[in-house]
Structures are given as structure tokens and as C-alpha cells.
Design a protein around this nucleic acid. Structure first.
Lengths: 202, 202
DNA sequence: GTCTATAATCCGATAGAC
DNA sequence: GTCTATCGGATTATAGAC
């Protein structure tokens, strides 16, 4: 979102591509759009990237490395498992609230990819974070199957952001529903106790 | 997915449009694709729909009315709230597992719509179901803010389906993770008790 | 590295016959 | 209602000069 100072043309192209692909998807962005945004001729892009597909993949990898890698720190600690999980969820909601482009880019790429691209993303982009979270899930809830649990955790965190744009138009909406800290608190409380006791009311 | 017998050309166009837009999104499908699929000339589509945008909106409304309206029955009953919620979640997972096109179409339209289209969808397509679920959430958990709770419920149910294609390539994957009954059981158990006790192991 | 120019294709939509 | 024919424009990507 914010304007950045890029060290070179290639990274400037990648940074703008992240914003544009996040906003309008692969087919919604033309090489002309990207070229105009960085102030080069369309043909200039092909000096750095073999084609549009490669530019898109590189943009996703660039964004993921920049935004997600710092979060693995919170997962791999050694302290109390619930404390690490809570810290991770708090940091993840904070990042997703701040990096709207990143969240939309991942959403786009998960929806608009064939099997081959999904396999490549799973192996080269998602795997490490997923494994770290799966190990932590195993510590927090030893009796549960870890894969569905990880999906539930990520879904609980991401879905409020995915639905943000349409929730505004649905009944009962309040501005505080966008607050990342409130979202994190809600998710952690739900994971800890379910709805049994209304223990997060205030 | 399955071949259907349509009563007229208009519904045949809508049915095929649902499949195509679900598979490749708005920009990924051309009017030529749709026309060829139903066996008419491209110009013929404009007899039934003013433009591509209207065809897409009508296809979403058509799919939602067909697939979701039957589910409101389970929400509006009068019996035990938890029982109604469990029945609704079970039916919703069953529908989402069966109607893959429908799930992808909603995902596409939520991601690839401007504010105006989202407002129109919220008012004319999502509102009734959302309200019914919100009322039930209020009964089940009187102490909680109902909007975030509804989002958590839907997210818990939908996210396993949204991530189905990529989960196959991630560690710990098992075929039973696709079983709608298992997903429903997992979600209900999580909502009831959180992860406190490993009470869904078997 | 970056440009101009352009090839080759595809797109949404319309006009008008039948 | 459905067709043929086509307009005007956008698209990815390449060729070749500088």
C-alpha cells in the first residue's frame, strides 16, 4: 500500500505487481498497467521476467517472504504452547490488518491457480509456516488431528478479513470488528473454550 | 457440475455460466466461451442479458437461490438452538461438498467485486441467511457479539473447502479431511468446547 | 536496459437479415 | 429468437534500434 523506496527496478516492478494483482487479480492487470506504474515501456518488463506468469509467481514469493517469514519466530519458541499460539495469532492478525495487499494476493492466488501452481506454492511458499503451526497445534491439543486444526485456526483468523468488504453492508456491523486485537482475542477465546461460557464479553 | 435438463435457453445459459465463472472467474470467461457451451452464437446471449456484468449477477442470484434457500429451513425452526445449529452446519457442509461450483462462484464474487456489487449482493442475496444465522447465534451464545460469531461459524465451515485444493499438497493430509460429516463434527465440537478437552478423538 | 513499432490474437458489443 | 458479419479496442509478446 505505502510508497516504498526500492533498491532497483526489478524490486520496484515486484512491489507494484503485488499491489495490482492484489487489487484486480491476474487477468485484471495488464503488462501495460504494470509498466506504466513503474514508468517503463511494456517491453521493458520482459527484460526481468520471461512472461506474465513468472512475474506473478515472483511477486507472490516476494510478498510472502517479506510478510510471513518474520512470523515464524513466534511459532518456534520453547515456552508455553498456548502462549506461543496466542502470540502468533496476535501477530498474524496485526499483519493481515496492515498488509491488505498481501492478504488479497494470497486469496487470489489460491483461487486462481491450477494444480501445478498450487503444488509449487505449497512446496516452496507455504510448507514451512504450515509445519511450524502444525507442530504447535499438536502441542496445544494433543488429542486432535493437527491438519484440520491448523485449517480451523487460519480460517478463524483470515475469514474476518476476507469478508471485511461485504460485512460492512450486513446487519450488526460495528467498526470495532476490524480491530486486529479484538479479532485475535475472539479467536483465542473460541479456541480455548468454545462458546460454552460467555467469557469474552465486556 | 452434473448435466441438467433446463427448461429454457435462459436457464441453460445461467447454469453453464455458473460452472464457467466458478472455474475461471469473470475475466477468465468470455461471452464466446459461454455461447459455444450452450450452442448459440455469441450475439444470441445479448437477447437474454444486457451485458456480461448482468449475466454474471443473474448467475450468482440463480445459484444462491437454488442452493442456499433450502438451508434456511434448518435455521428457523423452534427447537433446541444447539440442535438447530448442528443441523444447519451439517447441511451446509454437505451442500458445499456437493456443489463445488457454487462455493467457488461465491468466493470469486466476494473477491472480484467493487463496493457497489458487494452492496447489491449483501442486500439482495446474503442478507436473509445472514440474519437467520445471526439470530440463532444470539440464542446459542447470548453473551457474545453475534456478527463476529457468525463470521467465525461460516469461516470454520467454508475454509476447509476453500483450502481443499492446496491442502492436498501440504503435510498431514488425509482423505477423510474431505468428508463433510467429519468437517461438521469438528466444527461443532470446536464451537461447543474449544480445544480444552480432546473430546472428538476416536 | 530501455525504447519504438508492430505482429497476432482475443475481447465485448452492435447492426441488421431472417 | 437466433444468426452472420464486423467494429473498435485491448491483450501478450517479439523484433530490432540505441
Amino acid at each position: 500500500m505505502a510508497k516504498q523506496a526500492f533498491t532497483n527496478t526489478r524490486e520496484e516492478i515486484l512491489g507494484l505487481s503485488v499491489s495490482l494483482f492484489a487489487a484486480r487479480g491476474f487477468d485484471g492487470v495488464s503488462m501495460r498497467d504494470i509498466a506504466q506504474g513503474v514508468g517503463v515501456a511494456p517491453a521493458g518488463l520482459y527484460h526481468y521476467f520471461s512472461d506474465k506468469e513468472q512475474l506473478c509467481l515472483d511477486a507472490v514469493g516476494y510478498a510472502f517472504k517479506e510478510k510471513v517469514e518474520p512470523l515464524t519466530f513466534f511459532l518456534n519458541g520453547a515456552g508455553d504452547p498456548w502462549g506461543r499460539l496466542e502470540a502468533f495469532i496476535t501477530q498474524l492478525t496485526r499483519m493481515l490488518a496492515k498488509e491488505k495487499d498481501f492478504r488479497r494476493l494470497i486469496q487470489w492466488v489460491l483461487l486462481d491457480s491450477n494444480e501445478q501452481r498450487l503444488q509449487s506454492l505449497a512446496d516452496r511458499v507455504f510448507r514451512d509456516l504450515f509445519n511450524a503451526l502444525r507442530n504447535l497445534a499438536g502441542e496445544v491439543a494433543p488429542g486432535h488431528d493437527p491438519q484440520p486444526l491448523v485449517i480451523s485456526m487460519i480460517g478463524l483468523v483470515i475469514y474476518p478479513f476476507e469478508t471485511q468488504a461485504v460485512r460492512r453492508f450486513l446487519p450488526g456491523y460495528q467498526l470495532q470488528h476490524e480491530d486486529p486485537k479484538a479479532i485475535a482475542r475472539h479467536v483465542v477465546a473460541l479456541l480455548r473454550n468454545g462458546l460454552g461460557e460467555a467469557n469474552e464479553e465486556k
